[in-house]
Design a protein around this nucleic acid. Structure first.
Length: 514
RNA sequence: GCCAGAGUAGCUCAGUGGUAGAGCAGAGGACUCAUAAGCCUUUGGUCCCCGGUUCAAUCCCGGGCUCUGGCACCA
């Protein structure tokens, strides 16, 4: 069995989870579930980043220890996972001993190799904000903004990691592995970034300035800062599990691609003599009217509200159906409702409902065998074959939105097939041929529904289980075996009709100016 | 400023060197198993602008405009 290790970024616990966090979990989960059904041995990691200055400050404001603060916010992130039906195998917190141990090991190893050195750093420091400032933090007239208070030029000794020496190696690596970063155009941005010389990376903070971190193993007066702490989680979580590392993919937001994941991380691994991951998927942002969704803009839409209202599957379906992985997308309640109503309620939900109704009414709730294969059946069979054959390559290329579009096309064709056969008319006829056609059409629509659902399962696992249940069907363990059009539903006893995706409101008629 | 991505029907987007497509929304129709759902038909477009190459450009080249993102030891 092929090993497939996949990770999300770890979330920084200085704020509550929002839509972007939820999307990244769902996207990674969809990939993980897809690989599992393809037969891979999947290991799926997510987690939280708990160290650092902001956590220390926030805890101080609340008058509680940083660990307690981290515990509280981490619990929020962790609670999100079951609500989204995320199938992660592990959850890592950077304050866990297993993580700290590996971080210190890697640091010590690099220090022993001479990859880390101590040097004096000269910069402008804001005592009020407890941070060094950049040139770009200045006002246009050269002064420092009021929020920084008094700014002084000070010198501080810190430890640096020798990034610069690996720049040429990284350029060559990326040139040879042109699919390392998905989508491909982002890799070009990395190459562009690497045209300028790299500076070595400052990886420490004096403990008196930042106590909430992992002490350097070779100098306990310092803690390691940000990237050696955060990035190593991907490795530390599985360091004691042979055969898992390297990761197949790291799924991250585009904001942390360059430089941390595309530059620091490969170089850190290479310098430490560890294998590199298969690649990095950088997804886009959810926007509202073109602006990034964020709390400060007051436009943050709480995904938990939508999940509570419509269920995890509807949320999962929307984000995967709507967003082309790597690009940005709009997220509004209106757009969510359009997809929900037209695709989940009207196309899929109604198909489930009418199939169950007709099977109950015209076949006493037992799915009959298909006796005939004429043009309408042949056309639907052919569309199924096409849909199925295109589906897997699309998913392998992360084109989930297109894959789902095709599945919807197949469900629409199934609805059209039902209109063509009109079982409600056949049911009124006693002619043997009409009765045969009735059985055939009932069997065909049920089979088409079963197959369509098999393709939706990794996006909407709960709904898929429910639909299989009301069809009286229990899928086997091997997903690919489920994709054959055959008569396996014959004799299955269906449940009473149900409304799977209730419409929240009657179709709104927008006022049309006359 | 530099680099990257993008500008196509009301909306979201696909697409090709030969005067453009899908879904949704809108309009009309026949039906009734069904969640006022489903099905059939259908109205919408100077394919950002200006030049150039070509028999022919929305798609190729040059210039311009607009939007979005990145530009390091700040998540």
């Amino acid at each position: 069995m092929k090993s497939f290790y996949i990770t999300t970024a770890i979330d920084y616990v200085n704020g509550s989870p929002h839509l972007g966090h939820a999307y990244e979990k769902v996207l990674t989960d969809v990939i993980a579930r897809f690989r599992r059904q393809m037969g891979d041995k999947v290991h799926f990691l997510t987690g939280v980043d708990e160290h650092g200055q902001k956590v220390q400050q926030s805890a101080k404001v609340r008058g509680i220890p940083p660990q307690q603060f981290a515990d509280e916010v981490s619990a929020e992130f962790r609670a999100l996972l079951p609500k989204l039906n995320i199938s992660n195998d592990d959850f890592i917190r950077t304050t866990e001993e297993r993580h700290k141990k590996v971080v210190r090991q890697v640091l010590q190893q690099l220090f022993d190799k001479g990859e880390i050195y101590k040097a004096e750093y000269q910069g402008f420091y804001s005592a009020r904000q407890e941070q060094f400032l950049q040139e770009k933090d200045r006002n246009p007239d050269g002064s420092w903004p009021e929020i920084y208070g008094e700014v002084t030029s000070i010198a501080e000794s810190n430890y640096f990691f020798k990034l610069r020496g690996y720049q040429e190696w990284l350029v060559q690596f990326l040139t040879k592995n042109e699919n390392f970063i998905f989508p491909r155009f982002r890799q070009k941005q990395v190459m562009e970034f690497l045209k300028d010389p790299l500076n070595d990376l400052c990886i420490s903070r004096p403990r008196e300035r930042l106590a909430w971190g992992i002490p350097l193993p070779f100098d306990e007066d310092y803690v390691t800062y940000v990237w050696f702490d955060a990035l190593i989680n991907y490795y530390s979580a599985v360091a004691d599990q042979p055969g898992v590392w390297p990761a197949a993919w790291h799924v991250i937001g585009k904001d942390i691609l360059v430089p941390p994941h595309a530059v620091y991380w490969p170089i850190m691994l290479h310098a430490a003599g560890l294998p590199l991951p298969g690649g990095i998927i950088a997804h886009g942002w959810w926007l509202q009217r073109g602006a990034k969704m964020s709390k400060s803009l007051g436009n943050a839409l709480n995904p938990l509200d939508l999940i509570a209202e419509f269920g995890a599957d509807a949320f999962r379906y929307f984000v995967i159906r709507e967003m082309n992985v790597g690009q940005d997308s709009e997220f509004t309640r209106e757009q969510f409702l359009v997809r929900y109503n037209s695709e989940l309620a009207n196309s899929l939900g109604n198909l489930v409902n009418r199939t169950l109704n007709m099977t109950a009414r015209f076949a006493q709730g037992v799915i009959p065998a298909a006796g005939l294969v004429e043009d309408p059946e042949k056309e639907l069979h052919a569309l199924w074959t096409k849909t199925r054959d295109e589906f897997i390559p699309l998913c392998e290329g992360f084109q989930f939105h297109t894959a789902l579009e095709h599945v919807m096309g197949f469900l629409t064709a199934t609805n059209a097939y039902i209109e063509k056969r009109a079982p409600w008319k056949l049911g009124k006829s006693a002619e043997p041929r009409d009765q045969e056609l009735l059985r055939t059409s009932l069997a065909t629509m049920a089979e088409a529904l079963r197959l369509g659902v098999a393709l939706l399962e990794f996006v909407m696992p709960a709904s898929a289980a429910k639909i299989n249940g009301v069809l009286g069907y229990a899928p086997g363990n091997i997903w690919k075996d489920e994709l054959a059009w055959d008569g396996r539903l014959t004799g299955c006893k269906t449940a009473e009709a149900l409304v799977l995706f209730p419409r929240p409101q009657p179709a709104a008629k927008p006022a049309t100016p006359s």
